[in-house]
């Protein structure tokens, strides 16, 4: 489960560059802050390496290990 906090993200796109599985993609429209948020479009490919979490300069990304089984809650689109 990948969560991107829309209040913290500044749209630097480093997560898109750094992800080895190319999970992220830019969203098509601006949010209210004027930022194209990264969307985890291919979340199934995620291997939980937590590299995006580590590289995010604004601490906006949290990657949770799928133990709870909560899916379908996408706040980014």
């Amino acid at each position: 489960m990948i969560k991107v906090d829309p209040n913290l993200c500044k749209g630097c796109d480093l997560c898109i560059e750094v992800c080895p599985q190319k999970v992220y993609e830019n969203s098509s429209k601006l949010n209210k802050k004027g930022v194209y948020l990264p969307c985890p479009k291919r979340e199934k490919d995620c291997t939980k390496c937590h590299l995006c979490e580590l590289i995010c300069p604004d601490q906006a990304i949290t990657v949770e290990d799928d133990k709870m089984g909560n899916e379908g809650d996408e706040s980014n689109d």
């Binding site: 209040n7 913290l8 500044k10 749209g11 630097c12 796109d13 480093l14 979490e53 580590l54 590289i55 995010c56 300069p57 604004d58 601490q59």
Partner: peptide, 18 residues
């Protein structure tokens, strides 16, 4: 205090995480 004052894409946040 968040979001921090650093420019978008600044390396400081990454170093803090590390």
């Amino acid at each position: 205090r968040l979001p921090n004052i650093f420019c978008p894409g600044c390396g400081n946040g990454t170093i803090l995480n590390s």
